[in-house]
Every structure is written in C-alpha cells, then in structure tokens.
C-alpha cells in the first residue's frame, strides 16, 4: 500500500470514530476516558497528516514558516479539549461531533505542516501532541487525589 493510500484509510477510520457521540451511552464516559478518546482521534488525524503529506527523507523540504501552524494547532487542540464544555456537548451530540472533527483537523494540520517543513518532524511534533492529550487524562478537568 502506498503511504498516501494508507493515510487516507486512517483518516476515513478516524472520521468514523468521531461519530461516537451519536451513540447513546457515550455521555456517561468520565472525563479521563473522554480525554483518551480524544487522544485517539488526534493520533488518527496526526497519522493521516504524516502519511498523506509524506515526502522523501532527506529532501529539501519546504518553507520554515510551516512550523507556525505545526506549533499553534496542538495548542488549539488542547484548548478544544476544555473539560467543562462537556455539559454542553453531552446535551448536543452534533456539536460534539463537530468538536471531534475540529480535533482531527487540528491534528492533521499539525503533522502535515511539520512534514511540509521536514520529513520526519511530523512524528515528533505529532508524538508530542498525542503525549499531551494522553497526559491530559490524568489531571486536566479532573483530580484524582487519594482522599485528602
């Protein structure tokens, strides 16, 4: 399979997964599981961005200003994971699906921009973004504590 075809396949699967909010039981998910679901969507969007944009290693690459969206998009994705907005989204599944599509788009922009500057950079920037999303599950909008 060509990298591009693989990327399009991953993107299609991720877009299908973004429809999860239309399932009835979805609203019961605790925040931390929600973050993990979002991390999965981000990972899908990021992989798609890498494989669809993939260029030959060691090639000259593109303009360094591609780095600006590559760094700003993950920040916007973290803001889009804002936990207290969940009440609204739980009541409005279609709004929630739009939020998921936004996350996928931001992830795609992140890695596609990074790869446009230099082959391989998408893996690192995308990896850092997925790390942030997974790490968010441990304490962004939720406190575990030990009974204090």
């Amino acid at each position: 399979m060509k990298p591009r075809t693989f990327g399009i396949l991953v993107l299609a699967l991720t877009l299908v997964a973004a429809l999860v909010p239309f399932l009835d039981r979805h609203a019961e998910l605790p925040i931390w599981q929600h973050h993990l679901l979002h991390a999965g969507l981000l990972a899908g969007g990021a992989l798609a961005g890498i494989f669809i944009t993939a260029r030959a290693r060691g090639s000259q690459g593109g303009n360094a200003f591609w780095l600006v969206p590559a760094l700003l998009a993950p920040m916007m994705a973290m803001f889009a994971m804002w936990p207290s907005a969940y009440n609204y989204f739980e009541a409005h599944p279609s709004g929630h699906v739009l939020e998921h599509l936004l996350l996928i788009a931001l992830a795609y922009i992140t890695t596609a921009s990074a790869e446009s500057y230099a082959a391989g950079l998408g893996w690192i920037v995308g990896g850092a973004m997925v790390f942030m999303a997974v790490a968010a599950a441990r304490g962004f909008g939720v406190s575990f504590g030990n009974g204090g």
Binding site: R57, G58, S59, Q60, G61, A64, L67, V68, A70, L71, A114, Y117, A118, A119, G120, L121, W123, I124, V125
Partner: peptide, 19 residues
C-alpha cells in the same frame, strides 16, 4: 523556544535523512 527547537530539529532531519 519551541519554534527554534522545531526549526533546528527539522533542518537536522532534512540534512541527515532521519532521526
């Protein structure tokens, strides 16, 4: 800081052909 890091890292990946 991250912009400079990404710029340097990308340029190194380009010239060396990979991490």
């Amino acid at each position: 800081f991250m912009l400079i890091c990404a710029q340097i890292l990308g340029a190194i990946l380009r010239s060396s052909g990979g991490l």
